[in-house]
Simulated assay, not measured.
Amino acid sequence: MSERKRVRPQLSDEASSYVRALIMSGSLRPGTQVRPEVLAEALQISTTPVREALQSLRVEGFLELVPRKGFLVAPLTGKDIRDIFRVQALIGGELAARATLNATDADLAELEALHHELIAAAARHDDALLEEKNHAFHREINLLADSRKIIWAMGLVSRYVPRRFYSSIEGWPKATVDDHSKLLDAIRSKDAETARSEMEEHLIHSGELLAAHFDERIAAEAVPSDDSGLARV
Rank of each mutant, 00 (worst) to 15 (best):
M154P: 15
S181V: 06
G207M: 01
P173T: 08
A195M: 03
M199V: 12
H135W: 04
V177Q: 03
E201Y: 08
A123S: 12
V157L: 02
A192H: 10
E132Q: 14
S158W: 08
H213R: 02
D127R: 14
D191K: 04
A145Y: 02
D126V: 15
H202K: 00
L209G: 10
A136V: 04
H202F: 08
A211S: 08
I169P: 09
N142D: 02
R159H: 02
K149F: 03
E170R: 13
H138A: 06
D126F: 14
K174F: 09
K190V: 06
D127F: 15
A186E: 02
G207F: 02
Y160F: 04
L203P: 11
S158K: 15
L184C: 10
G207R: 00
S181C: 06
V161Q: 02
E201T: 10
E132V: 02
S168P: 09
R188S: 12
I141M: 05
R124C: 09
I204A: 07
H205L: 01
M154R: 11
L209P: 08
R159A: 03
D127P: 02
A192F: 11
A145F: 05
H135N: 04
D127V: 12
I141W: 12
D191Y: 11
L156V: 07
R164G: 12
Y166S: 05
H180N: 09
D185A: 07
I151L: 00
A153P: 15
V157H: 06
L156C: 09
K133G: 10
H180W: 00
S168V: 13
I141L: 05
R148K: 05
E140V: 12
D126H: 12
K182F: 14
V177C: 12
A128D: 01
R124A: 07
R163A: 14
D126A: 10
L156M: 10
P173F: 04
S189A: 06
R163N: 12
S181W: 04
E132F: 13
L143Q: 05
L129A: 15
T194K: 00
K133C: 07
E132H: 14
L209W: 08
F165Q: 09
D178E: 00
R159K: 15
R148E: 10
H138R: 13
A136G: 14
L184Q: 13
I151R: 14
